[in-house]
């Protein structure tokens, strides 16, 4: 059975978010928590990309010689792709700061256990 690309993307995004929330809430290792948080962010980004998907669509670049009406009717919606680029950059910066804090805490405490470092 061939699953619709958009539906598959949405389901994958949902799975990433659920797995991410599970890891962030239930795992005790800080690095694993951060990986879970990255999953949540990636899930949201994939969801956003899926919003711009157009079955049988073309890339939204207007090439010379292309008919204007053909382009208007077939080009995928570019806005979600533009947004997701920004979102990835924000996610990367957040992740970098979080890992930096974890490095400092590891040097101070010699542990990566969330229950020890962050308390109950």
């Amino acid at each position: 059975m061939i699953i619709d690309t958009q539906l598959a993307s949405l389901l994958t995004a949902g799975a990433l978010i659920v797995i991410g929330i599970f890891a962030a809430v239930f795992l005790d290792n800080l690095i694993k928590k951060v990986i879970g948080l990255a999953f949540i962010g990636d899930g949201a980004n994939l969801f956003l990309i899926a919003m711009g998907y157009k079955p049988g669509g073309i890339v939204y670049i207007y090439l010379p010689g292309m008919a204007r009406d053909f382009f208007a009717q077939n080009a995928a919606y570019p806005l979600p792709f533009a947004l997701v680029l920004t979102s990835i950059v924000i996610g990367a910066s957040t992740m970098a700061v979080m890992l930096g804090i974890i490095m400092v805490l590891y040097k101070k405490r010699g542990s990566l256990k969330a229950s020890e470092i962050l308390g109950e």
Binding site: A44, M51, L105, I117, L118
Partner: peptide, 30 residues
């Protein structure tokens, strides 16, 4: 550092959910 990390962990859960809300609005209204 501990408090900042806690705040960031909570933020890293809620902010993508806010983004998801925005994505849903985008999906419905374009």
């Amino acid at each position: 550092y501990e408090t900042a990390l806690k705040y960031m962990i909570l933020g890293s859960i809620t902010s993508p959910l806010l983004l998801l809300g925005i994505a849903l609005l985008l999906g419905v209204t374009g």
